[in-house]
Design a protein around this nucleic acid. Structure first.
Length: 278
DNA sequence: CGGTTACCCTGGATGC
DNA sequence: TGCATCCAGGGTAACC
């Protein structure tokens, strides 16, 4: 579930609760999610550690510990999320942080167990790992850089937008909304985009992501919730995801829900009139 | 090498 | 009711 706006919302909720606090203990409930560390090792690093900061990098949540305690990276992927209030499903709890000197607990839950929890010795090590698989953040990338990166590939523009190596943070919901706002067909070869078209994508991606952050992300079914267990409101105002078969809010044409090459199992929504192929 | 697909995992919704 | 199938916000390994 979580894309950039959901992860940003999580971090904004987590930071005041965690940053500056000391962990009485950290408990790994499901070692399956661990990558490059063990339950015992991570719990030992966490015990008595002071949290210096909580940040977002792309769709990663990073938790910096003081001194030599290292740097924790959590990838929520499809169904991961943090709770400052008791989660609805205790059987989906994968890790908990316990604040020293209080009875406060922060839960990390992940229904489908596709999320990852990694530990790095230093922020630099984590940055190296991040940079290997990610391009510039979608909220910070400059238009000329986006043009160079997008037009280097012959893939369709939608899978290119979802490729974290091109830019970091865009996921399926916001890729569809971005291309609708930019009036670009999702199957347009990325290499065929003009400067003007990439300029529209550049403006749209920031507009869409910032509006989604203001709405605290997108919630449907039993998926993503804020750290307080509330639903994000973006799907009440967006035009594409979840609106297949409905009239386009701009022109009234029926919104198409389909699958496109390069994106197995992921739906793509677009308006054939607002987003012509040519 | 670049593009595309299979697969990781779980549970809710839908269909027979 | 019970069982099979499909679907889902992400990402990576393997394939062609």
């Amino acid at each position: 579930m979580p894309e950039l706006p959901e992860v940003e919302t999580m971090v904004r909720g987590l930071r005041p609760a965690l940053a500056g606090q000391t962990l009485g203990k950290l408990v790994v409930h499901d070692p399956f999610l661990l990558q490059g560390c063990t339950k015992g090792g991570l719990e030992r690093r966490g015990r008595g550690a002071k949290v210096t900061d909580v940040e977002r990098r792309g769709k990663w949540v990073t938790i910096a510990l003081a001194g030599d305690r290292g740097f924790i990276v959590i990838q929520p992927r499809m169904t991961g999320g943090f709770w400052l209030v008791s989660p609805e499903r205790l059987d989906h709890v994968r890790m908990t942080f316990h604040i020293e000197g209080s009875d406060k607990t922060i839960w990390f839950c992940d229904t489908r167990r596709l999320g990852k929890i990694a530990w790095y010795a230093s922020p630099e090590d984590a940055s190296t790992a991040f940079d290997k698989s990610h391009g510039p953040d979608a909220l910070k990338i400059e238009v000329d850089v986006l043009f160079d990166r997008l037009t280097k590939t012959s893939r369709a523009v939608k899978p290119a937008l979802l490729d974290q190596k091109i830019l970091a943070g865009v996921g399926n919901i916001y890729a569809d909304e971005t291309l609708f706002v930019a009036r670009i067909h999702p199957e347009r070869p990325a290499s065929s985009l003009s400067r003007d078209e990439v300029g529209r994508i550049h403006a749209a991606v920031k507009d869409v992501l910032n509006r989604a952050i203001l709405a605290e992300g997108s919630s449907f079914d039993a998926g993503y919730r804020t750290v307080l267990g509330l639903e994000g409101g973006f799907l009440a105002e967006n035009a594409m995801y979840g609106h297949g078969g409905e009239p386009c809010k701009v022109c009234g044409t029926t919104v198409v829900k389909t699958k496109i090459a390069g994106l197995i199992g992921r739906p793509t929504h677009f308006c054939p009139t607002c987003q012509p192929r040519s």
